[in-house]
Each structure stands twice: as structure tokens, then as C-alpha cells.
Amino acid sequence: MAATPSAPPPVLPVEQAVEYAAETGHVPANAAAAAAEHDAGGLPQFEFQHWAGQAVYLLILFAILYVLVAKVFAPRLRRVIDERAETVSSAVATARSVQTEAAAQAEAAKADLEKARADARATAAAAKARVTAEIQARQAEEEAAVAARVGEAEKAIAATRDGAMVHAAAIASDTTRAIVERLTGKAPTAAEADAAVKGAA
């Protein structure tokens, strides 16, 4: 290190460095070449004679790129982006109006449907009422017919019964006369027997 006080130590693995020193007796050639340029310090970044060239060159490049970006690229991209935003917003607006229209149509369709359903319901109710009335009328008619027949039948039954009862009284008085005749040997008159039967009954 004493030979090149300002040069960085060549960073080599220990074995290689020792080999180097043994073979050549001096620091590696590239380090020696670098050492010639290392004036301001160890890092090559601190060779100040290169600073002005880089800085000026970079400023020139920066200025050119700035002008290009400001005058060409940024307006181009901004135009496209604005255009896209416009397209998207108009598409969204269109979609929104279409949607409201569709919603209105759906509303109308729903109302129509509702009305149709109400109509149908009314028709059905009317039909049902009519049918019910018819059925009731027919039922009443038939009931009346049945009732009439039942009344007739009852009347016939009553007549038969009355007839039977009349016969029963005659039979009873005949029977009574026969029994009394057999018991007393003297037949009561028909009128007496009838009175007795009636009194017994």
C-alpha cells in the first residue's frame, strides 16, 4: 500500500493477492492504471475532472427530453386519456339512459301485467259467481221438486194410515162383537161395539 497511497487495495481473495504479490511484486495492472486516475479519492465517482462533462451532457439530454415530453408525448397521451374518459363517460351515460328506459318499459309491462291479471281475476270471479248462482238456482229447484215429492209421499202415507186406522176401528169392533158374542152368547149391536172400541181407544 505504501507504493500507491491513494489507490484502493485490490479486493482479491487472500490466496490470489498473495500470489499476485509473489509473482509480480506490485499491485495488479488494472489497479495501477486506475490509480493514475484516482486523484480526488478512492471512489471513481470522486474524480472531479469527469463531473463537468457528465453534468453538462445530462442537462442537455434532460432539456431535450423535457421539451419532447412537454410538447409531444404528454399532449398526445393526455388527449388519448381525455378521449377515453369522454368515451367511457358517454358510454356510461348512454347505458344509464338505456337502463332508465328499460326500467320504464319494465314498469309499464308490469302495470300491463298487473291490469291483465286483475281483469282475469275479475272475469274469473264473475264466472264463478254466475256458476255459483246457477248451481244454487238449480239446487233450489231440485230441492223444491224433492220437497214437493216428499210432501206428496207424506200425504199418501197419511191417507193410507188414516184408511188403515178406519179399517182398524172396524176390525176392532167386529172382533169385539165376536168376542162378546162368544163370551156372553149375545151379540152386541154394531153401534155398541163401536162406542166400546172408541171408549177403549
Binding site: P8, P10, V11, L12, N30, A34, E37, L43, P44
Partner: peptide, 21 residues
Amino acid sequence: MADPIHQFQITPLPGLDFGEV
């Protein structure tokens, strides 16, 4: 080669060195 600092070395490209002022 093994010097990690060597990559930062600034070297003029051949034929484009205009000397020092």
C-alpha cells in the same frame, strides 16, 4: 475483475477522448 469498485470507473471511449482543459 474482482474489484467491486472497478465498475464505477469512468473511461473515455476509444477515439472520443479530447484531453483535459
